[in-house]
């Protein structure tokens, strides 16, 4: 037994404590300053969005002061630079949707099958060899794709479809589809790869084939990621500019026939920008109204995609 007079551990006499050195204050100040700077950098992304939205709205507002929204949405002609000016977005919209439709009709199935193949079927070595090619495909500049569409794919298609005009939405859409495949397949593949192995094993353990496991278990489990891939594919397809500007022509044409030439929203913007339109004229403002339409379409799809993802969110 220890007694009070002889403690087990002796308490030392009180010595210096942590000093409040001025250096510490400078250090803290510097830390705060750095944090603020970094925060400003992160917040700058909001400034960019504000800039985009602000400019589009501001210039479009000026446009809609002169053109009624009803005309914009219902007029079947888009001839803002002619003397007999019409401001109907429908021809540009049809061009955008047809080219995007052709592209997606090609890219989504091929991209998804490619993703399933790479994630569930391909041996490691095949994947290692093939993936750089897909990355390369996504790195090809879009003007080069435009060149390819106009001077390789269109002549090829003209042999199959006689009378196909030199500018047509089919060729532009197909090449755009090839361009989009790597985006769709790589994001979908990542989502499928993220499905844990034990889920796969559970399916194989009851006797499923790779195909059944892929279609019944992996794809549904990865649906959230796959739907983001589709939304991104759609955004790319309607926002792509150079392929359609080069290969689909620049004449607004209200048609749903992919073998015809037509201008998309983006091609129209390029066409106007190539000319010399004075700042502040209605012609100048049309490209912002067109851009706003494009932006709203992208936004609508992103929101739809958000809810789709929420529905199919990964739960494993």
């Amino acid at each position: 037994m220890t007694t009070a007079t002889a403690p087990l551990i002796r308490r030392p006499p009180t010595a210096t404590r942590f000093a409040r050195r001025p250096a510490g204050r400078i250090k803290r100040l510097r830390e705060r300053l750095i944090e603020t700077l970094l925060f400003l950098a992160a917040a700058s992304s909001i400034a960019i969005t504000a800039g985009i939205v602000g400019i589009l709205f501001f210039e479009s507002l000026a446009f809609f002061k002169q053109v009624s929204l009803v005309d914009f949405l219902t007029d079947r002609q888009w001839t803002p630079l002619f003397d007999d000016a019409h401001y109907g977005i429908l021809p540009l919209l049809s061009g955008t949707l047809v080219t995007a439709g052709v592209a997606l009709a090609f890219a989504l199935p091929v991209g998804t099958v490619t993703a399933i193949y790479l994630s569930e079927y391909a041996p490691h070595k095949v994947r290692e060899v093939v993936k750089p090619f897909l990355e390369l495909l996504s790195a090809v500049p879009t003007v080069v794709f435009g060149y390819f569409a106009l001077l390789f794919v269109t002549p090829l298609l003209q042999r199959i479809i006689p009378g196909l005009p030199g500018f047509n939405m089919l060729s532009a859409g197909l090449v755009m589809g090839v361009m989009i495949i790597p985006y769709v397949s790589s994001i979908s593949e990542d989502a499928m790869k993220a499905v844990p192995m034990h889920i796969r094993e559970a399916s194989y353990a009851v006797g499923a084939t790779r195909f059944q496991t892929s279609v019944r278990v992996i794809v549904p489990s990865a649906m959230s990621g796959i739907s983001s891939a589709y939304v991104l594919g759609f955004s790319r397809a309607i926002g792509e500019t150079m392929v359609v500007a080069i290969a689909a022509g620049m004449q607004p044409n209200f048609t749903w026939n992919p073998t015809e030439p037509a201008a998309t929203i983006t091609a129209y913007i390029v066409q106007v920008a190539l000319g010399d339109l004075p700042h502040g004229t209605i012609g100048y403002q049309t490209i912002f109204a067109a851009g706003l339409t494009l932006m709203l379409m992208t936004l609508a799809f992103n929101i739809a995609g958000y809810f789709l993802r929420k529905r199919y969110r990964e739960i494993y």
Partner: peptide, 13 residues
Amino acid sequence: INMVFQKANPFPK
């Protein structure tokens, strides 16, 4: 011959 695994692995269904 079926199997039950170490960690429960239900499908997300």
